[in-house]
Amino acid sequence: MAKLSSATQRPIPVNYTKGGQTSVRGVVVHIMAGTLAGTDSWFRNSRAQASSHFGTGKTGALYQWVDTADRAWAQASGNSTWLSVENEGQGGDTLTDAQMNCIAEVLAWAHKVYDVPLQVASSPSGKGLGYHAMGGSAWGGHTSCPGSKIVAQLPQIVARAQRLVAGQSIEEDPLAGMTKQDIYNAVWKTDAIPAPSTSSTIKTNPTWEAVSVLSDIANRVRSTEATVTAQSATIKTLAQALADRGDPVDVDALMKRITDAIESVTVRLDVDEK
Score class of each variant (00 low, 15 high):
L175K: 12
T201A: 06
T204D: 06
I193T: 15
Q168H: 13
G136H: 01
A152K: 11
A152C: 12
S199H: 04
T201F: 01
I170C: 03
S197W: 08
K203R: 00
S137P: 13
G167P: 03
P146A: 00
G141E: 03
H142I: 02
D182C: 11
G141F: 01
L154G: 05
Q168L: 08
I170S: 07
A176H: 02
G147A: 02
S137W: 02
V151M: 13
A138F: 01
P194A: 05
K149H: 10
A192G: 15
G136M: 02
D182N: 15
W139K: 03
T204F: 00
Q181H: 13
G135A: 11
T143H: 10
I202T: 08
P174N: 01
V187G: 12
E171A: 10
G140L: 04
P196T: 03
V165S: 10
L154N: 06
S169L: 06
N185S: 14
Q162E: 12
Q156R: 11
S137A: 11
G177V: 09
D191M: 11
G147I: 08
W139S: 15
L164N: 08
A152F: 08
G135W: 09
Q153S: 07
K203Q: 02
T143P: 00
I202N: 01
C145H: 13
I157M: 11
S199F: 04
D182P: 09
I183T: 13
T204A: 11
R160K: 14
S169K: 03
I193K: 04
A159S: 13
A195E: 04
A176Q: 07
I193P: 08
D191A: 12
